[in-house]
Design a protein around this nucleic acid. Sequence first.
DNA 1: GTCATCATGTAAGCCGTTACATGATTGC
DNA 2: GCAATCATGTAACGGCTTACATGATGAC
Lengths: 218, 218
Amino acid sequence: MNDLAILGLLDGQDLHGYELRKRLGELPGMRAAISFGSLYPALARLERDGLVKAVTNRTSPTPPAPMSGSLAGELAAFRAHRRRNSGKESRGSRGKKVYGITEPGRQRLRELLVAPEVVDDREFAVRLAFCHRLSPAERLALFRERREELIRRRDQQRSGRTSQRHLTTYLRSFLERDTEATTADLAWLDRLIAAEQSSATAGESAGESAPSKPGGER
Amino acid sequence: MNDLAILGLLDGQDLHGYELRKRLGELPGMRAAISFGSLYPALARLERDGLVKAVTNRTSPTPPAPMSGSLAGELAAFRAHRRRNSGKESRGSRGKKVYGITEPGRQRLRELLVAPEVVDDREFAVRLAFCHRLSPAERLALFRERREELIRRRDQQRSGRTSQRHLTTYLRSFLERDTEATTADLAWLDRLIAAEQSSATAGESAGESAPSKPGGER
DNA sequence: GTCATCATGTAAGCCGTTACATGATTGC
DNA sequence: GCAATCATGTAACGGCTTACATGATGAC
């Protein structure tokens, strides 16, 4: 799941590890940000496999940081950089190691997005965050797979409630709420699928498969 | 979390590992049953620490298995048992190792139930399954802690939605549904807390702290 | 007598965490 | 200069999974 999230974020823009971790934490389904002890080795592995590569720290298309006019700081960093080693390696102007996704990385991202179902709810949330990289058909398949998982779960809850031996009131109440939540999730998913289908049909007649988003990428 | 679930289940009745695993899987919040490679070492550790102990396989107060009148089987098992070693060790009539909780184990269970908050949703579900072992005050504290966590989460969702950069429609839609779910969870929890408080008050006036269970003393 | 299931364990390996070590940058 | 924060890593450790090994029981 971490690989998926890392590649997904880097597909949007180049980032260095420290920043990447913050974004990872903001992603829905990634409640707690992963630790550096996990992130850096993961990045190293991805780089080794050629899925990401370190790039020079040219200003990103959409600079996320305030970049608060610290010209003096930039210059000092530049001097420091030259002091250490002049231009060798792909480290940015501040010693930050900025990563970008490669073409094999993008391919891998799509693979991970369409990979066989997983039961984990958080995994679905992460996939959803990057599913705009999929084709309409693949996206629909992802949604339908999720739908089947939720239906499976709801049925299990229903059958389980009757077969269950002596439940406490607390647990019974919880299970009711749980079923309710699953039902609501299912309704939401159905709306999502319906919207997707109609936009796919619209795209068909228009000759393009663009989601209903103005100013979409590309 | 596994320790909590194991101790909680054993507090209800004596069980052997194989059966325990099945029950663990049925517990809400324990979507996938843990593996044997995790369970047996855990049980060994708990036994070493004196929190559970192996007991002889006397018939449980509430026999869960069909116990389908296999008298011949029982006898054969008894013979097999005698063949191997006569009465040494606390193994039941079939080689099954049936565990029961000890007094220190019960104490540990209560410790785990009231232990400081965790963000994991599944952990709360497991605690809820066994919270009837807590005093009304402790239970209320558990609920309130959970409530604060949910409120924290909802506020974060609200602030996050505005600060978030370029969200895809998919993610935006998901976040809306997520907030909705959190709100509904919160409402449910509030009902639970209200019910708990009224039953506590009722118990107070009656001189006892009994939950609202029919058949309880006045 | 053989196969599925019940039942208990061990070993190797993956993946993630905490703790530690190091150094640059910036504000005061 | 000093502290806080940014930034990158390594090492030790823990927990869980898969795969493997073993054997009893019960159905046919």
